[in-house]
Write a protein that binds this DNA or RNA. Sequence first.
DNA 1: CAAAAAGGAATGAACGTTCATTCCTTTTAC
DNA 2: GTAAAAGGAATGAACGTTCATTCCTTTTTG
Lengths: 191, 191
Amino acid sequence: MTKPDKREEIVGAALELIAEHGFHGAPMAMIAERAGVGAGTIYRYFENKDELINQLYREVEKKMVDDLLVGYPMEKTIRERFLHFGTVLLRYFISHPLDFRYLEQFHNSPYGVEYRRDRILGKKEEFDIFRDLFEEGVSSRVMKDLPLVILFALSFGPLLAVARDHILGFITLDDELIARTGEACWDGVKQ
Amino acid sequence: MTKPDKREEIVGAALELIAEHGFHGAPMAMIAERAGVGAGTIYRYFENKDELINQLYREVEKKMVDDLLVGYPMEKTIRERFLHFGTVLLRYFISHPLDFRYLEQFHNSPYGVEYRRDRILGKKEEFDIFRDLFEEGVSSRVMKDLPLVILFALSFGPLLAVARDHILGFITLDDELIARTGEACWDGVKQ
DNA sequence: CAAAAAGGAATGAACGTTCATTCCTTTTAC
DNA sequence: GTAAAAGGAATGAACGTTCATTCCTTTTTG
C-alpha cells in the first residue's frame, strides 16, 4: 500500500465508523483495524484523534461544497438558485449517507458548536455562496426580511431533517418528493 | 436531605452536566459530585447510566408536553393551532435551555434514534396531538399533501434550529421574531 | 423512657474494562 | 546498509459499576 493510500484508508475507516457509531463508538484501534493498518500508524498521519476528526470534517465538507457548486445557475433567479441548492443538497446527502451522518455527528458535538460560532460570528470575508444568496434575497425583497440565521434555519432545518429521516429509513425520498420539499422550503423563506 | 430530594438532585445534576457537555462529558462521578451525593448513591435510584439517561429524557419530555398543552386552542383553526404550537414551543425552549440541550443530545444519539423509530414506525395508538393536527391539516387540504414526516420536518426543523441558535447566542429571539418565525413555518406547510 | 438492636440508605475506595497514545521492534524503500 | 515507515504490544488515565463498611433512623426490649 502506498503512502497516500494508507491515509485514505484511515480517513475512510474513520468516516464509516464514526458515521455509524459516533465518535465514542469508534475507538482508534477499531479505525486502525478497519483501515488495515497498525494502531500506531494513524499517528504518523494525524497528531491525535481530534486532529483526525477535524481534518476529516474539512474534507467531507469541501467535497460536498464542491459538488454543490457544480451547475450552480449563477445567472438565474433567486428562487431558482435556492431550489437548485435544496435539490442538490438533498441529493448529495442521500447518495452520501456516511458523509451526512458524519457531518451531523460533528455539528451536534462540541467540535461543531465551536466551528459554527467561528462561522457565524467570526470573520465574514470567507467565500460563502449561501450567505450571498440570502443577502441578495432579502435586499431585493424576494425573501422575508428576517435575520440571516433564521432564513438559514427555515431552509436547512427541514432539509437536514428530511435527509436524516430518509437515511434512517423513516421515509423514502424520490425525485418528486425532493422537489416538493425544496418548494415548501422556498414557501417558508419567500416574501 | 430527604429521599426524593436526593433523586431530584441527581436528576438535576445530570440534566445540567449532560446538557452542557454531552453524555460523554458527564461521568457518573461528576454527576454525583454536583448532586452532593456519593457515587454509589446514584445506583440506588437508577440501575445504570443508561437508565438515568432514559428516565431523565422521559421527565423532561413530559414536562414540556404538559406545558405545550396548556391553553391549546382546541376549537380554533388549524393555522391558529399550528401557530400556537410554534410559539409555545419556542418560548419553552428559550426559557428552559437546559431541557432543550438535553433533548437535542438525546435525539442526536443512538438513544434518540431508537426512540424515534418506535415513535414513527411503531404503535400509533399513543396520544399524539401533533400527529392529529397534521393529519387534520392534510385531509382538510389546508396543508400541503406531503407525508407527515416531511410536514414535521418543515415545522420542527426550523423551530429547533432557531432555538439552538438563540441558546448558543447566535441570535436573540424576541416576541416579534418568534411570531414571524412561526408564520414562516406555516408558509412552508400550508397549501 | 432509655438503651440496644435491626434495617436499610449512603458512601467512596477499589475493580475491571476501555480507550488514546506511546514506544520499541520489525519491515520496507532506496 | 541505513533511514523512514509501519506495526502492535504496552501504558496509564478515565470510566462505569460494585461492595464492604458506615451512618442514621426506626423498632424492639426491659
